[in-house]
């Protein structure tokens, strides 16, 4: 147990280093964009004098490394800066949007992960049968279409033709929970379709890999049914690869929502990112990028820890 704690701490520190590196990349990339915040704010009204004055006020006259440290120092204290577009605190701006996105991602995960795991296990159990091939073909088809296309297809059939779901996910802080679920269901479905294929195929592959091993043959020779051999004997040994791919996909649900949120006008972090980029609202862009990379790193850490806990060779050393 102490080893696990040590390992988690070590991974967390490594994660912190990764975040630092990512922040540097983000800051560098944003700095390289043509034009700066002062130009963006003043727009048509810019004169060389007013630009210089505003730059002084925003601290844009300072060298890049100092501005980076400033930004970093602010973030450590929870201060993400203020939005250029509307003067709001970036943290409060992101907070609400992030909650919405996490809600959407969570909903998609609750649909996608169990469905994908069950399909993966079934495909492994009935491998090389018609069922297996049909599932493979279906999921491959789903993953091959671009998400916005899937999203529009869903809108066309389920909201325009049948009118079951709203085509725009109109969500505000006051929206009641089930109403929220109802309005988020369509974007969640669009996200799920992309993710199910990945998780399902990986689950199947991880299980089929194990089925040729002597201990699975042993289970069959002890009289286990095919289902018992797969679910009881193979599945616990396939946890590590499955959890890894699940975590990667969950991270994708959070970071990859940009397109789906835009299509459904869902007020999440992806939509915020797109809006901010078009408005050159650089403090918001930087903060959103950092938050999403943080989600990525944390989820992968979680996957590593679960994979380790699932392996008795690591939990119970000789």
């Amino acid at each position: 147990m102490r080893d696990i704690v040590q390992l988690v701490i070590r991974r967390l520190l490594l994660g912190l280093l990764t975040v630092l590196a990512v922040s540097l990349v983000i800051f560098g990339a944003v700095s390289m964009l043509p034009g700066d915040a002062a130009q963006e704010i003043l727009g048509q009204a810019a004169t060389p004098e007013s630009l210089a004055a505003l730059r002084l006020q925003l601290g844009l006259d300072q060298p890049a490394w100092l501005r980076y440290l400033h930004w970093l120092g602010g973030m450590v204290q929870g201060d993400f800066g203020t939005s250029i577009a509307n003067g709001q605190q970036v943290s409060s701006l992101i907070g609400e949007r992030l909650a919405n996105t996490l809600f959407l991602a969570g909903l998609a995960a609750i649909i996608a992960v169990p469905v994908a795991l069950v399909l993966g296990i079934l495909a492994a159990l009935y491998r090389n049968t018609l069922f297996d091939r049909a599932i493979s073909a279906l999921t491959l088809t789903a993953i091959s279409f671009p998400e916005f296309f899937v999203a529009y297809i869903l809108i066309l059939f389920l909201s325009v033709n049948l009118g079951i779901f709203p085509s725009i996910s109109n969500i505000s802080p006051g929206t009641e929970f089930w109403e929220r679920v109802y309005r988020s269901l369509l974007p969640a479905a669009a996200l799920s379709l992309a993710v199910i294929a990945h998780i399902m195929r990986m689950t199947r592959a991880a299980l089929v890999n194990l089925l040729g091993l002597p201990y699975i043959e042993m289970a069959r020779l002890k009289g286990a049914t095919p289902r018992r051999a797969v679910v009881v004997h193979a599945l616990p040994n396939a946890v590590a690869p499955i959890v890894t791919v699940v975590a990667l996909n969950l991270a994708y649900l959070i970071t990859g929502v940009v397109i789906v949120e835009t299509v459904f006008v869902y007020p999440g972090i992806g939509k915020l990112l797109v809006d901010s980029v078009s408005k050159r609202d650089l403090p918001v862009v930087q903060a959103v990028c950092l938050v999403t990379s943080l989600a990525y790193i944390l989820l992968n850490l979680l996957a590593d820890v679960v994979a380790i806990i699932s392996d008795p060779r690591l939990m119970h050393p000789r």
């Binding site: 091993l213 002597p214 201990y215 042993m218 289970a219 040994n237 008795p312």
Partner: peptide
């Protein structure tokens, strides 16, 4: 091979 035929989990 008992080592390979016992389930490691």
């Amino acid at each position: 091979s008992a080592a390979a035929s016992f389930n490691p989990a």
